[in-house]
């Protein structure tokens, strides 16, 4: 018998009420995770600018900047230095996520 007070059951009840998670949302989460993985891979060799990461990851510069901005906010990337008109970003030693 399910316990309605169990938080997990409450979540599943809400999910039933709202219907299945949209494929578009799941796809955006997948793409964001892929972009973050590509950025981490590119930065593993050392600090890079947004255009340099974009070239290494084969993704648009706009996507890289947005994702790097998110990673900086949540603590896995920091500003390293500036290179002419661009900022170099680096991975933090210990990723909190």
């Amino acid at each position: 018998m399910t316990n309605p007070e169990n938080p997990r059951n409450k979540m599943l009840e809400l999910k039933d009420k709202h219907g299945p998670v949209s494929p578009a949302l799941l796809e955006s989460v997948r793409q964001n995770n892929a972009a973050k993985a590509a950025i981490k891979k590119a930065l593993a060799a050392g600090p890079l600018t947004v255009p340099e990461i974009a070239e290494a990851a084969a993704l648009p510069t706009r996507t890289i900047l947005w994702t790097v901005t998110a990673m900086r906010k949540y603590g896995s990337v920091v500003e390293d230095s500036t290179d002419g008109s661009y900022v170099r970003y680096a991975l933090v030693a210990k990723d909190p996520r």
Binding site: P51, T61, R62, I64, L65, K73, S85, Y86, V87
Partner: peptide, 16 residues
């Protein structure tokens, strides 16, 4: 702010 400095959104260039 989002970038911590003024950058342009397309590629992170510091605008001249």
């Amino acid at each position: 702010g989002p970038y911590g400095r003024v950058l342009r959104p397309s590629d992170g260039k510091i605008p001249d």
